[in-house]
Design a protein around this nucleic acid. Sequence first.
DNA 1: GAATCGTGGCG
DNA 2: TCGCCAAGATT
Length: 358
Amino acid sequence: MNVGNVLQTWYGKNRRDLPWRNTGNAYHIWVSEIILQQTRVSQGISYYHRFLKKFPRLEDLARARPDEVMHVWKGLGYYSRARNMHVTAIRILNEYEGKFPSGYENILRLRGIGPYTAAAIASFAFNEPVPVVDGNVYRFLARLFGIVHPVGTAAGKKAVTEKAGKVMNRKNPALHNQAIMEFGALQCTPFRPPCHACPFRKDCLAYITGRVNDLPVKQKKPASEERYFNYVLLTGQLDMLLKKREKQDIWKGLYEFPLFESTSQIEPGQLTGNEWWKRLEKRTGPLHLKYHSGIITHILSHRKIRAVFYHAETRDSLPALQPGETTVSVTNWESIAFPVLIDKFLSQYLPLFLNGSI
DNA sequence: GAATCGTGGCG
DNA sequence: TCGCCAAGATT
């Protein structure tokens, strides 16, 4: 049997109608592929529309300010994707006159585009015969051919890519690649796949040998470590003080409040008694601590953030700004690209603060 | 090769 | 509550 033909037939009956499948625009396809990296389709769809409404053409993205790009990406996670897209848009505007380049090797050189995304764009937008290997394809082919190399290893990647190239329908790479990914997403699912309804049931090595639940092999992840973030919402009049995160760390490019990070949980007295707080008050003058939240746990993929929010008011207005700092009105905070942790806090806390119940 | 980088949904 | 997962790339 011909794997490619079976996939194509299956795809004709089972494909979802997704917005980025109705375009040949390389820019649109690029946007969709970056958004969908490590992200569910259901979560990505609204961001796809929002992103293209804000930046209809590659040139619009290239000419935008970094803060604008981050604001559109706010809440989607993996923010390096947005920063890299911006860099790449500028480069394409300069080097390719704003026209997205074709050719797998050319595409692969662009920042934020690795082997999968380059293959996806090359095949979807330019119909180039390069096999895509994403998580869906890896899972499907690992099961079908009984590939036991763990996900993420070079050997596994090589073995699966080789198989993907062999089963590819070279007459219509764009359609084929969509089909094989869709098959992994909808039929050859990670958890309890409906093998009874699978067209490859008789040929699937994992199914035949009863190892569907054991493939693909995954290596266990290291335990997630805890970090303790003590945030100070600092207001003077109706402005609050913000600082952009610029270090190589989580949430780079997003804004936050003055932060004291500790290695363990601390009490309010330990915050207002420490050197960091004293330096803060040296800038602001005496602070009135009017509120502190309980511990709020924010889970990242391999970190646990234990956060406490403090609200301190200055006697008068906020101090002069230092580099990387800015202010925003408490009624205009949604114009700022905050991480979800802070976004959630503000959406709950500010209404209470503004109507005087805190 | 291993660690890092977010968020939301699900069992 | 928690681990796993979802169209990966970078360092």
